[in-house]
Amino acid sequence: MNRCIMKAYLITFAWISVLLLSETGVALASQTDVLTTLREVGLSSATAVRISTALELGLSLDHLGQYAPEEIAQWFKVKEGPLDDKEAILLTITQALEDGLPAAMLIDKVKQGLGQIYDDKKNIIPQPRHPLPQIRHEISVRAQLLAGVEGLLHGKNIFVSEEARAGLTVLPLRRFDALVTNIADALGDYLEGDGNPYDGFLLYQAMSTRLRNQSSAESVIPAGESIIPAEDVDLVLDRIEPGDLTPTVLKALNQS
């Protein structure tokens, strides 16, 4: 073989090796960055490790939504506020991720709560938009709702594909997560809008409206890409009754 071509092969091998090694290095560096940032927030090493591990797990399961672990850690470093509130919010997210719950909705809510405020010169002020205790409470209720809704779906024999057993209805993970997220979010919005937790019919209406709207919006996506197909909506509305929702919501309110 031509010596030039041999040389070309060697150069290519070297480049590919560098590329593959650097990719692994970037992943490790990224987790180290999260840990460092969490320690800079003021958290203990053990807590920081637990949170960063959960965030990595959430990332691998696509339970963080559009956010990266580094971003989430950074928010708490940048924003001013009591350390125990920051820790409680992060641990609520961590617990949800450790339980395998789709925590993207919680993280988005935290981002909304922390928000951005500008001074007259359009500089970002480090204060959160809403007080941390308020965010902490809101996140806690919604995390309990996520767990409650997942339990409710399991109680109605609706499971994720990996949990398939005889007599169960199984859904792919993304579709199951989408149901849990949207039902919990709809119930959370209902409660936050001063809705009566004892009114099962209004809770049911909030849930069904959300699922139907979400499903209709996604129906314009080419076939196979929708995460809440109409059949899943029918399945949920068929199995869950208004009377099921009040106990779920009350339990979430009591445990938060």
Binding site: K109, Q112, H130, E138, D189, E192, N213, S216, A217, V220
Partner: peptide
Amino acid sequence: ADEYVRSFGEYNSVRYVGLAGD
């Protein structure tokens, strides 16, 4: 907006993109 929700004591608007008439 298609609907409104309360969040942290304030209103938020909601739009469903892709929904007929949105």
